[in-house]
C-alpha cells in the first residue's frame, strides 16, 4: 500500500482526532404562528465526526427536520426563529458565518439526507440499500464528510448509521451507538418504536403499538413530553422534565455515547 494519495488532502481539511466535524449546541428554534408559539427544537445537542454517520430518528413534531434545516441554513425565517444555540463546524459557529461560507461547508463537508415518510426514493428497491449506495459514493468523493441521516425508519438506521439520536417533541430523548440502541434501549419511546415494527417471528400476532398520538408542539405535556404515551409513567414523569442522563452500566461505569432523558432509564435499560 502506498501513502501517496494523502498528498492531495490539504492539511487544514484533515480531521483532528477527537474533534467533531459538526456540533450542535443547545439549539432552540421556535415557530410563531396564528396558533401560538411552537417550540420545535428545545435544547438539542449532537455532534458528528468526520467519516461518521449519525442518524437522527424521530416522528412528526420531533424537531428532527427543523434541526436539520437550521444546520443547512434552509429554515424558513419567519415563521421560524433561532432563539439560542450554536452550530459549530470545526469549532466555528456556522450561525455567524456569511451565507457563502456556509454554503461551501454544507455542500462539501456535510451530507444531510432527508428520508421523509413519503420518500422520493424508489419505494421498494430499497431505501436502506440506496442510502448505502449514496453514502458509498459520497465516501469515494470525500472521507472527511460527516453524514447525517434524518429519518423515521428503524430499518434504514440499522443499515447505515454509526450512532443515533432519537428525538421526541423537540428534544433528544436518547443517544447511543447503533448496536447498543437496538440491543438495549434506555428510553421507553425507543423501546416502544423497536417493539412496534413487524417482526417476522411474531407473524399473526397483534403488533405492539405505542398508544396515543405524536406530540402537539403547541401544547407539549408537562414533565416528560412522552408521559401520556408511556406505559411506565409515574407522577414524577408528569411533573418533572427529565434531564438527559449519562447512561452507565451496573458498576456505574459510563457507557460511551449513551444518554437517556428518562427518569427511569436504569429500569428501562435493565428491564
Amino acid at each position: 500500500m502506498t501513502t501517496a494519495p494523502e498528498k492531495t488532502t490539504a492539511a487544514k481539511d484533515r480531521p483532528v482526532p477527537g474533534t467533531p466535524l459538526l456540533e450542535v449546541r443547545d439549539l432552540h428554534v421556535e415557530f410563531k404562528t396564528r396558533d401560538g408559539v411552537a417550540k420545535a427544537v428545545n435544547g438539542v445537542n449532537y455532534s458528528v465526526a468526520a467519516g461518521e454517520t449519525l442518524a437522527v430518528l424521530g416522528e412528526s413534531g420531533s424537531g428532527k427536520s427543523v434541526t436539520a434545516q437550521t444546520i443547512m441554513g434552509i429554515l424558513d425565517m419567519p415563521p421560524g426563529r433561532i432563539t439560542s444555540g450554536e452550530i459549530l463546524f470545526r469549532g466555528q459557529d456556522m450561525l455567524k458565518m456569511s451565507g457563502e461560507e456556509r454554503r461551501r461547508i454544507r455542500g462539501r463537508k456535510i451530507a444531510m439526507i432527508f428520508q421523509d415518510a413519503l420518500s422520493s426514493l424508489n419505494p421498494v428497491l430499497s431505501v436502506g440499500y440506496q442510502l448505502g449506495e449514496m453514502f458509498r459514493v459520497h465516501e469515494g468523493a470525500s472521507k472527511k464528510e460527516a453524514k447525517i441521516l434524518i429519518t423515521h425508519d428503524l430499518g434504514v438506521v440499522a443499515d447505515v448509521a454509526d450512532k443515533i439520536a432519537v428525538m421526541y417533541a423537540g428534544r433528544i430523548v436518547e443517544t447511543a451507538p447503533v448496536h447498543d440502541l437496538y440491543a438495549r434501549p434506555a428510553h421507553p419511546y425507543t423501546e416502544g418504536l423497536l417493539r412496534s415494527i413487524p417482526r417476522l417471528d411474531q407473524k399473526g400476532e397483534e403488533l405492539y403499538a405505542i398508544k396515543g398520538l405524536p406530540p402537539n408542539l403547541y401544547k407539549v405535556p408537562a414533565g416528560c413530553a412522552f408521559n401520556p404515551r408511556c406505559d411506565a409513567a409515574t407522577d414524577l414523569c408528569r411533573t418533572e422534565s427529565p434531564a438527559l442522563h449519562q447512561v452507565t452500566d451496573r458498576d456505574g461505569a459510563e457507557l460511551a455515547g449513551r444518554a437517556s432523558a428518562c427518569h427511569f432509564w436504569k429500569e428501562t435499560l435493565r428491564g
Binding site: 416522528e59 415518510a117 425508519d153 418504536l193 415494527i197 413487524p198 397483534e206 403488533l207 403499538a209
Partner: peptide, 16 residues
Amino acid sequence: SALDVSVQAQVINLLE
C-alpha cells in the same frame, strides 16, 4: 406509509 411509525402499528392492528 404516510403515517408515523408509532401510529402504523395501531392502524395495522385495526385493519386486522
